[in-house]
Design a protein around this nucleic acid. Structure first.
Lengths: 166, 166
DNA sequence: CGTAACTTTCAATTTTTATTGAAATATTTC
DNA sequence: GAAATATTTCAATAAAAATTGAAAGTTACG
């Protein structure tokens, strides 16, 4: 396969994955582009390569930076900003997990906490409490598992990570 | 908190979580409603409770069934169909994980497989291969970890599950 | 300063996704 | 087998999300 073809395919695939995961296509594609680029790129480079507008590029680069997946890099003698991606995959996963945990898991935990105070004698109320308690338990477990993951080092892949959980 | 209030809050929260996870709000809300209902409900019940149209209800119930999260139930003497949710949370998680794995992880694995054949001498091509190999390794690991999860029994929560991985 | 280079913002527009509702299809009962 | 009851489909519509592009805002250099 031609390099250019492979590159396009990769960027495309990453964009689709992003869409599935609730990240917009462009953001994921910029990420992909920076991941495979040996050099930091400027806004123009990104706009050109992905054929997107300046505003779109700017907003999504910004979002990637707020996720900690992309850094601004200043080249000496150059006035414009360059951007480069975090390339350590373990770090990438950790950053994504901690962002999503904060945005998604923590609010549901808070809601479950609130809602689990409910009492009631009806069949309905009993079933409700049971399900809520169950989900709550599960979510708290997931939450602490993710905390462990986020704190763990890159060696988890070779096995020691999981032993720490129960 | 009033039971009705708690119920609404729970359905609302589940809908929001669904949205974050790329599931449409209505599908997640129907799921929430069935989860906390001690009795199977019919389409009318669901339409009324969530204030949605017949078509919307039908389509999303169907989707939930295709995910294996909801079952059709026939009540003797009743002509219409009733629906009930899988309530074992471990099963729920497994079903969701296996659906999303198939839909999202497997395609990216296939794309990486293809794309990792690329060769090239340029700096760019080398960086590309390196990143692709890294992601590939990571994804395969994630894939097999999820396979183990899907096959595991409900006891994973109390610890034995993770020991099996390395 | 002033101006050129670059970045940010945001209202308007386009694109994508979800929802409705009514017609078509299917199923059960008498 | 036809009327009554349920379910499915799908074109039209509405709602939500992403994108553009041009104007406003910054910054850095002579």
């Amino acid at each position: 396969m031609e390099f250019q073809e492979a590159k396009d395919k990769f960027i495309q695939a990453w964009g689709t994955l992003g869409t599935d995961w609730g990240v917009n296509r462009t953001m994921a594609q910029i990420h992909a582009l920076l991941l495979i680029s040996p050099e930091a790129l400027c806004a123009e480079d990104i706009m050109e390569e992905l054929k997107i507008s300046r505003g779109n590029a700017n907003m999504n680069i910004r979002a990637l930076m707020s996720w900690g997946l992309v850094r601004k890099e200043l080249k000496p003698g150059e006035r414009k900003e360059f951007f480069s991606a975090e390339k350590n995959m373990m770090e990438v996963v950790k950053k994504i997990v901690s962002q999503r945990k904060k945005k998604e898991l923590e609010p549901i935990l808070a809601a479950l906490e609130e809602v689990s105070q409910t009492e009631g004698e009806s069949e309905e109320a009993k079933e409700f409490s049971k399900v809520v308690r169950d989900i709550h338990l599960f979510s708290k477990k997931a939450n602490s598992t993710l905390d462990t993951l986020i704190k763990s080092d890159a060696n988890w892949l070779i096995g020691s990570f999981f032993k720490t959980m129960k």
